[in-house]
Design a protein around this nucleic acid. Structure first.
Lengths: 248, 248
DNA sequence: TTGCTTAGTGTAAATACAACACTTTCAAAA
DNA sequence: TTTTGAAAGTGTTGTATTTACACTAAGCAA
């Protein structure tokens, strides 16, 4: 084909999701492996994703992928952007991945990447011999991924790091009730630095978007921490005032 | 077709660019009209864009669109994201636009949107009877655009507003030499509020990324302002220190 | 009862931000 | 030549925010 000629075959367009969860210690990403036959190239993991349907918009497609894989619906989802260098099918294993989502074999693939934050308790991967089993992998243990998924994952984390300073989306990663220390640990994991306990607590509580519960931790070998829950009503009210800084 | 069936026809994928320029008074966006026949539906303007080629990556395609239209190359470009509701071809005129970029007629169109900041002096649209003539339109005079381009334009401005607080990309919109008042006016245009002159100057100068020139304004009927230029070397050094706040 | 572990709390110094008014310099008009 | 208009340029002060820092409280286990 002549260089720079318009394509005759339209590209495949898929949606891939970076699904992040927090295990009270570090961030984890949900990855899938194609099947359980452990050939060398089958060990390469990928972000969950699929081709978009004709009749759904992009956000719907991302929601569908999340729902089909985990059963979770109506969750916070944010588009990272489009990826798709023409030479992105570089690894031996990438072709197999493409077959598995029934992509047009001759066309390039462009993917619209999303990231989302979920409570890990909402999805516990089942040990399975089925194709496409999913596993939680701690961010610092992630190895090379299929296609350009490593790059997408990196973008997602960078985006989250910026966004969490401005919007308290971190609450999506925690159970409904949580302690201030858990919240602080979450922020430290995302931002990659330790925070001053007193300053953190003062700042969070001053926002007045948390409700302190009467309940406390039990069974711990130290002073039990008080549980809090996220107060969505107060948060919405706060946003309306033009609030835009949650910086630590 | 059955609902939620995978598409048989891959979507068209195009790149659209929000090209912004500053005329020392307000922000302008570069729009094109399809041809000079002034039928009613031909008056609808659109963002410049085109289908991506088979062998180019997305950023390259956006650069190409910018270069083909204006001759400008190697400019700051930032991806906004992907747009493309399946029902986005809503207006009578939209089909004509699609024909003009030779899109596959039966497939939906997904577009990857970019925005870029240019010096208006670098591109002066020529009055033309050719198809697809381009014009600078002040942001507050923009009417309904083709497809979902109004939504894309809105996203671009919102993105710029956030980004300019953190990165001094505003210099891309000004000539090489400019006065502090021009710079302030630019920030006021983007942020949509007036800024205190003394506080603005103190803050900008403290960053030490501007070099004051010996040259002053001439021919003005008031005290002539000193010219400054952007010092890229000092800026890069500043970024390395972890600087991330240019807030006003 | 002692020891270990994490929860929970206040203050002071340094820094950043916001508000505010007058003098200077040029060109044009009187 | 003098006056006028118009924007450039310049510091200070009060307020709010950020940072740094150390001890007591409460539970469980040994």
């Amino acid at each position: 084909m002549k260089k720079n000629e318009l394509h005759k075959t339209n590209p495949n367009v898929s949606v891939d999701s970076v699904i992040l969860g927090f295990d009270f210690n570090q961030l984890n990403v949900l990855l899938i492996n194609r099947d359980s036959h452990q050939n060398e190239e089958d060990k390469i993991l990928a972000l969950p994703g699929n081709l978009i349907y004709d009749n759904e918009d992009l956000d719907m497609a991302a929601n569908r992928v999340l729902r089909e894989l985990t059963g979770i619906k109506d969750i916070y989802l944010d588009q990272i952007g489009a990826f798709g260098n023409p030479d992105r099918i570089s690894k031996k294993s990438d072709r197999k991945w493409l077959e598995s989502i029934r992509a047009h074999p001759d066309a390039r693939v462009i993917t619209i990447a999303y990231y989302t934050l979920v409570k890990m308790e909402d999805f516990v991967p089942q040990p399975s011999s089925f194709a496409k089993s999913a596993i939680w992998v701690p961010l610092n243990k992630v190895e090379e991924l299929a296609f350009d998924h490593s790059e997408i994952l990196e973008s997602a984390v960078a985006r989250l790091r910026k966004k969490i300073i401005i919007h308290p989306i971190g609450f999506n990663l925690l159970p409904n009730k949580f302690t201030l220390s858990q919240l602080q640990k979450l922020y430290e994991s995302i931002l990659g630095r330790v925070l001053d306990k007193r300053n953190f607590r003062r700042k969070v509580l001053k926002l007045a978007i948390l409700t302190q519960l009467k309940e406390k931790e039990t069974g711990v070998t130290h002073k039990p921490a008080s549980y809090y829950k996220f107060n969505k009503v107060k948060y919405e009210a706060l946003v309306k005032t033009g609030f835009d800084n949650f910086a630590f």
